[in-house]
């Protein structure tokens, strides 16, 4: 266990350094983009004079030199304060927390669906390699991987909401229906169906192909032949010997992806009018809402680091040969 503690300690120290660099880098990059929130707001108002723009710049704190702004921002971050969006007149933490439930509901469900479905399909294809079920799965995976995600979303809406009328086309829940408790939960689930499938299909394709390739590689190895020779059942061979060895690369990719879950998905959220973080981020880019953007980047960076550590730990659990160092 001291080895484990040492590992965690070294990773966390590195993480803090990485975070510091990320904050400064993001800050510089964002301010390098032309225009500022005052320009955007003046443009939206359709009229502006110098006083209007100056007032906004002062309110946004943009009248200060850049290094002072950076200093203020880093100071706030150190105190656990993500800043304040002057444009939206709310603390950044509130804005992020507002969008978090919808984001996590969408991305988590899609992630689980993709991972479970992808591994199952990939294995199935690998076991039946060369047969028709393998071909069907491979073709489907290729299609879902190659089709633009917003197009899939729009087609699903056309079929399931417009033509069949089974599922709501967009939104997070029925607005103004006054539903509560279980009824509301069911309503949200209904609204989730299409966006989750749209987002999930893409990643499912990735995992399917990854699992299939990896499982095929493993199943020709000597220890699989040995297992078969000693008369172990095919089911056990696949689950205990093949899958356990084939899953490592899948896990690596999943670990990276899990870190980005909170970032949301701009395309799916836009098509389905889903009130998630992806859209908040996208709007913040266009509006040059610096504080919100930095907040999103910060939170995402933290999560990527956390999930990387978790992935490393999972390797050890699944494959005892891997050691942490």
């Amino acid at each position: 266990m001291p080895q484990m503690l040492r590992f965690l300690f070294s990773r966390l120290t590195k993480a803090i350094v990485v975070l510091g660099v990320v904050v400064v880098l993001n800050f510089t990059l964002i301010h390098a983009a032309p225009g500022d929130p005052a320009t955007v707001m003046a443009g939206e108002a359709g009229a502006a004079d110098q006083m209007f723009v100056d007032q906004l710049r002062k309110q946004f704190g943009l009248d200060q030199p850049l290094y002072v702004q950076l200093g203020t921002y880093v100071g706030h971050i150190l105190q656990g304060d993500l800043g304040y969006s002057v444009r939206q007149q709310r603390p950044v933490v509130d804005l992020l927390l507002d969008r978090l439930p919808a984001t996590v509901a969408l991305t988590m469900s899609a992630f689980v669906l993709a991972l479970a479905g992808g591994i199952a399909m990939g294995l199935l294809a690998a076991v039946n390699v060369g047969k028709w079920s393998d071909s069907v799965i491979t073709v489907l995976a290729l299609l879902s991987y190659a089709t633009p995600i917003y197009w899939v979303g729009l087609m699903l809406v056309l079929v399931f909401s417009v033509n069949l009328g089974w599922l709501p086309a967009f939104g997070y829940e029925s607005i103004g229906a006054g539903k509560a408790g279980l009824e509301r939960f069911a309503d949200i689930l209904e609204h989730m169906a299409l966006p989750v499938v749209t987002l999930g299909l893409f990643y499912m394709a990735v995992y399917t192909r990854l699992t299939r390739a990896s499982a095929l590689e493993v199943s020709s190895m000597d220890f699989v032949k040995t297992a078969r020779a000693k008369g172990q059942s095919e089911w056990k061979i696949v689950t205990r010997h093949v899958l356990r060895n084939a899953i490592l690369p899948v896990l690596t990719v999943a670990g990276v992806q899990a870190g980005q879950l909170v970032g949301g998905s701009i395309l799916v959220e836009t098509v389905f009018a889903w009130p998630g973080l992806g859209r908040l981020t996208f709007d913040a880019v266009l509006q040059r809402d610096y504080q919100v953007l930095l907040g999103v980047f910060f939170v995402t960076s933290v999560l990527v680091i956390v999930f990387n550590i978790i992935t490393d730990l999972l390797y050890v659990l699944i494959d005892p040969r891997v050691e942490i160092a």
Partner: peptide, 22 residues
Amino acid sequence: KDIYFKIIPDAASRALALENGD
């Protein structure tokens, strides 16, 4: 009695929403 303003960011989705009465 009341008015709901719905935020629908995608133009194709907005057309659909008008079409199906949402």
